[in-house]
Measured scan of single mutants.
Amino acid sequence: EWCEALHSFTAETSDDLSFKRGDRIQILERLDSDWCRGRLQDREGIFPAVFVRPCP
């Protein structure tokens, strides 16, 4: 499952995944309604679900 970043997100901890608006992120797991775990290029981490939308 893939999503597109609606806003940029800067990691606040070593577990977070930083990304820029427009990045396509592979969703690996939905942790709960607020957080997802994903992969961007060679990095993995968690990020807020409200920062992304599903890719068509």
Rank of each mutant, 00 (worst) to 15 (best):
W2S: 02
C3I: 04
C3Q: 01
E4H: 08
E4I: 13
E4K: 08
L6Q: 12
L6S: 08
L6E: 05
L6R: 06
H7S: 12
H7T: 14
H7C: 13
S8M: 04
F9N: 11
T10G: 08
T10D: 15
A11Q: 06
A11E: 04
A11Y: 00
A11L: 01
E12W: 07
E12H: 13
E12R: 15
E12Y: 09
S14I: 10
D15S: 13
D15R: 13
D16H: 15
L17R: 02
L17G: 01
S18Y: 04
S18R: 02
F19Q: 07
F19Y: 02
K20G: 08
K20C: 09
G22K: 04
G22W: 01
D23Y: 02
R24S: 06
I25G: 03
I25V: 05
I25C: 00
Q26G: 02
Q26I: 14
Q26Y: 06
I27N: 02
I27K: 04
I27E: 02
L28S: 06
L28I: 13
L28N: 05
E29A: 10
E29K: 07
E29Q: 11
E29S: 07
R30N: 13
R30L: 06
L31I: 13
L31D: 15
L31E: 03
L31S: 07
S33M: 10
D34W: 08
D34V: 11
D34E: 14
W35F: 15
W35I: 15
C36T: 07
R37H: 04
R37A: 03
R37E: 03
R39M: 10
R39E: 03
R39H: 01
L40N: 13
L40W: 03
Q41R: 13
Q41W: 07
Q41F: 11
Q41H: 13
Q41L: 12
R43C: 12
R43K: 11
E44D: 06
E44W: 02
E44T: 06
G45C: 02
G45K: 01
G45V: 00
I46S: 08
I46E: 06
F47N: 09
F47T: 01
F47A: 00
P48L: 01
P48C: 01
P48K: 10
A49P: 00
A49E: 07
A49R: 10
A49F: 13
V50P: 05
V50R: 15
V50Y: 13
V50D: 12
V50A: 15
F51V: 09
F51P: 00
V52D: 04
V52L: 05
V52A: 07
R53L: 06
R53F: 08
P54R: 08
P54T: 10
P54S: 10
P54V: 08
P54Y: 04
C55W: 10
P56L: 15
P56V: 04
